[in-house]
Amino acid sequence: MAEKKQYNRRDFINNSLRAGIAVSLAGITVALTTRALSGKSVWQLNPAKCVQCGRCATSCILETSAVKCVHVYDMCGYCDLCGGYLRPDTKELNTAAENQLCPTSAISRKYIEEPFFEYQIIEELCIGCGKCVKGCGAFGNGSLQLQINHKLCVNCNQCAIARVCPSEAFSLVSASDAYLYQGKKM
């Protein structure tokens, strides 16, 4: 008899605790779901803060980084001797392969008319090292900029690049601000 009474008490405690857990879970769900439905957080790279340290190429959890160089054509000077395309220490100023700056030859150059050339990033080859970004920034207009390609980015809770970024260029923003270009507002 005594045993059964104890059993009931335990049942009662369990039931109350369960009810408490249910209420708190429901509370968390309701509180967070409204927030979750109102938007989406994605990682954003601010090119104005970027120092092209090269860690984007090595720190992303993807095999090749989701950070890619993007060409903001509005800012490009279409130069022949492009600082982002050619190595600065070349013997002669020509476009031979050994003079190319990009370690993966991910920039293609197309003649338009004298003396203008168009430069395009071949995204599949780009590793996001930012070497060309630095070259373009030093000599040119800074039309080459690093950005996160959100088709590739898996949007980790804590971006592995953001963790090691020395200049706080990464931040978690609303999906509507996923891309941020310097110079011209897109």
Binding site: Q52, C53, G54, R55, A57, T58, S59, P88, L101, P103, I127, C129, G130, K131, K134, G135, A138, R163, V164
Partner: peptide, 10 residues
């Protein structure tokens, strides 16, 4: 956090 060398330094 990460090493301070940059393999692709400009």
């Amino acid at each position: 956090p990460a090493d301070s060398t940059n393999a692709t330094e400009y």
